[in-house]
Design a protein around this nucleic acid. Sequence first.
DNA 1: GGAACAATGTTGACATTGTTAACACCGGCA
DNA 2: TGCCGGTGTTAACAATGTCAACATTGTTCC
Lengths: 202, 202
Amino acid sequence: MIQSNRNAYHHGDLRRALLDAALARLADGEAGQLKLRALAGDAGVSATAVYRHFADKEALLAAIATEGFEGLRHETRAGGEDARDPVARLHGIGCGYVRFAREHPAHYRLMFGPRMLDREQHPELERAAGASYAVLEDTVREGVEAGVLAPADAALLSTAAWSLVHGLALLIIDGLIDPERADDALTERITGLLATGMESTS
Amino acid sequence: MIQSNRNAYHHGDLRRALLDAALARLADGEAGQLKLRALAGDAGVSATAVYRHFADKEALLAAIATEGFEGLRHETRAGGEDARDPVARLHGIGCGYVRFAREHPAHYRLMFGPRMLDREQHPELERAAGASYAVLEDTVREGVEAGVLAPADAALLSTAAWSLVHGLALLIIDGLIDPERADDALTERITGLLATGMESTS
DNA sequence: GGAACAATGTTGACATTGTTAACACCGGCA
DNA sequence: TGCCGGTGTTAACAATGTCAACATTGTTCC
């Protein structure tokens, strides 16, 4: 386990360094596409060295997207943590979701940008994405079982909630919603509208 | 006004031909990026001829996106046409919206894909996008004025509705929702959940 | 300890693609 | 008729993903 073997040739953990470089560029805005040569340069390494750690560019992007989904999972979980009932938890999750997208717009776009078909070729991505969705899904199921959410198809409610926060997140980071308005309060009020329709009317 | 001057040199309406080629490729799925050389080839013309009609690739994409927004406007308008009250009209609009995305996935992705910042540099795009959004917005306003929608901030209701259909549309075309389930009925049930929260509770 | 071997980097080259520059053709107007 | 603007062509360049061949290092086994 070498951890920082900077002997001018072997890098130590180039894979990690490349991912960090990519994350840094995403955090900086970096409107356009990530460029392998640039990432390699950031890591102080030759362009083709990338291929020792990633099959191709798509594999690298998949790895980044995977980490994004892990972050999204944490943010949503944290958002719903100190909520008493499932409905309040859903609100927290929704706010966490949109907040993640707002704080990491380029990263979020990458997560949902490149055709999702390739997810089937990147099991890690598939798993991470599923895990992040499960946060929402599980809470909805909880709510249905607790009787506070309409006993409709639970999958339907999850899909609706996901659609709402996903759409809102994208509209915000694409600048289609006035950035002034785009804060937690907006998310809260909007998710509140859907929550009303999801609540048990019994 | 020459319309089909195929004298081996001057094309007649290359601009239109290029756009049609692009639309055809989008309709064919065409997972990746559109390539200028390919479009030029489809039109039977040299790669650089494109630049006589479009400043650059982005301008061509903007033109395509513009036509997409016009199509979206028509589809949503048609969807809400024969509805009696504003709420029913909103349902129709939502279904039309998602249907457009389902029927033209690549086109829809292009419309929202490339950073929206450049919209400010493409007035046509800006206008078309605004007009398509107005269909939804106007109907919401109608509903609020008619008293069937909650007298909350009308902009909030519009944003919520847009978020929901936009998110749903993207989840569907990105394959994140089981294609089996993705039909008008799904849209209808999901928009129904939000509509409940938007309706006037007086 | 030393020799094979796997892992990891490097250089050089190639194909693709967007884009520009310089030139060619065509149709209309003075 | 001759010029000119609009339109299309070829040649070439730069950026970028990727591969092949080679170099270097770390490891493992005798």
